[in-house]
């Protein structure tokens, strides 16, 4: 392994030293294509982010793909209702790995201002794992850009082997998540315990899984 300072020094001399991992992640992070998928008000700010003033293209993410098969990133931009939630999970399942999720806005995180609604899902992370949350109602375009950079940092930091490697390099990792059913009164189940391990105070701790679906220690 070349030490970092030496690498920078060599770079100044015009010599490029890199690792497969760096090169690979550099490629992945520089062309994250989001899915063209807007849910509510936040989607308008998402569109504004791609327009001339904020210009998301600077981050290699201007190509919004209408098809989930061609997208790497799902920006859940807006309120997920219970009528829509199964479709969101289905779309997520249809995306090819590697795939990432940004929950944009208060609604996608927790239901936001509409939390008390009977038809509002109280946070998309009840059904699918989320990589970056952006608070705000709606988050400003700058906040979305910040989330994007956070995601790029995360991609940059993923090792290709060993612990913490991305899901698509891990044969055991779960890539598809169960789609909830629309029942007579509510979604069934109301949350996917695999990704939404709710701690209930006073009740013994339960099995927890981390974002990639692996089991983590259960005592707290």
């Amino acid at each position: 392994m070349v030490d970092n300072e030496l690498k920078i020094e060599l770079g100044k001399q015009g010599i490029l030293v890199t690792t497969i991992e760096e090169l690979y992640n550099w490629g992945r992070r520089s062309s994250v294509w989001p899915m063209q998928f807007g849910l509510a008000c936040c989607a308008i700010e998402m569109i504004a982010t791609t327009m001339a003033r904020y210009d998301l293209a600077r981050f290699g993410a201007e190509v919004f793909r209408p098809s989930p098969r061609q997208a790497d990133l799902m920006i859940v931009s807006g309120t997920v209702t219970k009528k829509m939630a199964p479709q969101v999970v289905r779309l997520y399942n249809q995306m090819a790995e590697p795939k990432y999720v940004i929950a944009m806005g208060a609604c996608a995180i927790s239901g936001g201002p509409f939390k008390q609604g009977y038809n509002v899902l109280k946070g998309i992370d009840r059904y699918i794992p989320v990589d970056v949350h952006i608070p705000g109602c709606p988050p400003r375009p700058e906040a979305l850009i910040q989330a994007f950079m956070t995601l790029q940092k995360k991609i940059d930091g993923q090792p290709l082997t060993g612990e913490g490697r991305p899901r698509f390099l891990d044969a055991d990792a779960q890539c598809e998540f169960p789609v909830p059913e629309q029942g007579a009164h509510d979604l069934e189940p109301p949350s996917n315990q695999g990704v939404w391990p709710v701690e209930i105070q006073g009740v013994g701790s339960r099995e927890r899984r981390d974002i990639d679906g692996r089991q983590v220690s259960t005592d707290h």
Partner: peptide, 25 residues
């Protein structure tokens, strides 16, 4: 109905002025 956010039901449970920010949405 894919974006039915229950604006009317929520508004019936809060004061008049508290619905003003919901109308923005």
């Amino acid at each position: 109905g894919y974006l039915h956010r229950n604006h009317e039901k929520i508004a019936e449970g809060v004061a008049y002025l508290a619905s003003m920010p919901y109308t923005d949405r």
